[in-house]
């Protein structure tokens, strides 16, 4: 393991310059975006994710999986998986992002690198329907019991339609749209049409 330290700042004082240049040397020129001085986003091809995370986990101070979540880019027919990898000794995090096809939503599990990934991957499977083959609790309910529908965090999941179907309105409901209600109360009229 080589030395990372705060003296390795770039011209803007960003401590992440060191790790970015090393990633670029080793894995190629991924697009990099410095969100904040201590938070750097990398967009990497799906095929590079396991080699990159393995290397980070074993060869660099970026040893901690802080978070794993997903974004539904419905219009682009892709999910984005976001791995937040932290170097506790440097107080810097990397947001490593990959895109996976939305139709065949599948990604390699990182459960062998970080045991806690098992829970994140279980949750992503339940909420987005993203499959992580080999991850231990895929398909085991996380917080949804007996869920029969489309994974609810997918953006094409119609929440109000689901509500109407599974939680019928209680009898006696009435609703007054403020726009219409105010117009009626104050005698709004039209004189042209």
């Amino acid at each position: 393991m080589f030395d990372f330290n705060h003296s390795n700042l770039d011209e803007n004082g960003n401590p992440g310059a060191e790790i970015v240049s090393r990633i670029h040397d080793r894995f190629g020129n991924f697009p990099v975006h410095v969100q904040k001085p201590d938070l750097i986003r990398l967009n990497v091809p799906q095929t590079d994710i396991i080699p990159l995370l393995s290397w980070l986990r074993t060869e660099t101070p970026f040893v901690q999986l802080t978070h794993l979540t997903a974004i539904d880019w419905l219009e682009e027919d892709e999910f984005e998986l976001v791995y937040l990898i932290t170097a506790p000794s440097l107080c810097i995090s990397l947001m490593v992002c990959i895109r996976v096809n939305r139709e065949k939503a599948e990604a390699e599990s990182v459960f062998n690198l970080w045991l806690q990934a098992e829970t994140y991957e279980q949750e992503l499977h339940e909420m987005f329907g993203i499959h992580f083959p080999g991850s231990p609790r895929q398909g085991v309910p996380f917080i949804l019991e007996g869920w029969q529908d489309m994974p609810p965090m997918r953006r094409d999941f119609d929440t109000v339609e689901y509500c109407n179907r599974t939680h019928p309105e209680r009898p006696g409901r009435e609703h007054h749209d403020s726009r219409i209600y105010v117009g009626r109360k104050f005698g709004e009229k039209g004189y042209l049409k």
Partner: peptide, 15 residues
């Protein structure tokens, strides 16, 4: 936000 409160305040109650 299309709440329509303005319609009440407008003397001619514009839409």
């Amino acid at each position: 936000v299309e709440c329509g409160l303005c319609v009440a305040a407008c003397p001619v109650h514009m839409h």
